[in-house]
């Protein structure tokens, strides 16, 4: 479904990624974990087209997407729920959802389906997005990304700044998407939550992936060592 092969990337003279390779099959969920500065955000920036890779490539459904513009990548089926939700404050809830469909990609996700998956949003449709709670905003951000009918959905720090109850609501929505067969890559600081919500995990450190494997039965001590670099 989506493959990252020997990816090297950085900003100016600063190199951040050193040969990152990952593969996520159709319907799988990958949890990308790692401390701040490990390279998770840069990996997402390359996937979404905001950072051009120095070498290596990313393929989505067999088509190379690395080096394309962000708008072209969305049109090819990769959508993202950005860190901090980043809803458009001057748009209503429904307008935020509709803007997700801007690229006119064909598929089964439309307003009706988003409202059926996130029923709490329908009564709020005319409200300014900025008037919603953090958890409601996160559901809008997920719904907005789904409106582009993605093949793969990237979710960056879904629980950031949310109450524990709101995090539960958001991850219930993620579970539902997984059950429906959506392919996901999630970045999450809460390792327990990340492992419980994924099929496979990859732990990043210093721009590489020292540890990866199936999430079920993952060795927490081994992950902590890789996470903090206690080799």
């Amino acid at each position: 479904m989506i493959s990252i092969n020997d990816l090297h990337a950085g900003y100016g003279a600063l190199s951040v990624l050193f040969g990152v390779s990952l593969h996520v099959a159709e319907g799988q969920t990958l949890a990308l974990i790692g401390s701040n500065g490990a390279g998770k955000t840069t990996t997402f920036s390359v996937l979404t087209g905001f950072v051009k890779p120095r070498s290596g490539k990313v393929t989505l459904n067999g088509s190379v997407i690395s080096g394309l513009t962000p708008t072209d990548i969305v049109s090819m089926g990769l959508a993202m729920v950005p860190e901090g939700r980043r809803l458009f404050p001057s748009l209503t809830v429904e307008e935020n959802l509709m803007i997700g469909a801007h690229c006119d990609r064909k598929g089964t996700w439309d307003l009706q389906r988003v409202y059926s998956v996130f029923p709490t949003l329908e009564p709020l449709r005319k409200r300014p997005s900025s008037s919603l709670s953090g958890g409601q905003q996160q559901l809008v951000a997920i719904g907005r990304a789904l409106m582009s009918n993605p093949i793969v959905l990237l979710c960056d720090e879904l629980s950031l700044g949310l109450s524990p109850a709101a995090v539960d609501v958001v991850y219930t929505a993620i579970s539902r998407l997984r059950a429906e067969g959506m392919t996901l890559i999630i970045v999450e600081q809460d390792i327990s939550r990340a492992l419980a919500s994924s099929d496979i995990y990859a732990c990043m450190r210093h721009g590489g992936i020292p540890l990866s494997g199936p999430s079920a039965g993952a060795d927490r001590a081994q992950i902590s060592s890789a996470y903090f670099g206690m080799d």
């Binding site: 979404t48 962000p70 708008t71 049109s75 993202m80 748009l91 803007i99 801007h102 690229c103």
Partner: peptide, 23 residues
């Protein structure tokens, strides 16, 4: 209109608008 939504979204955040496929 779709154009109006796109320009208001771009006005709010150019980078997030690009994530929505807006040129």
């Amino acid at each position: 209109t779709k154009f109006g939504r796109a320009i208001r979204a771009t006005s709010d955040s150019d980078q997030t608008a690009q994530l929505m496929g807006i040129k």
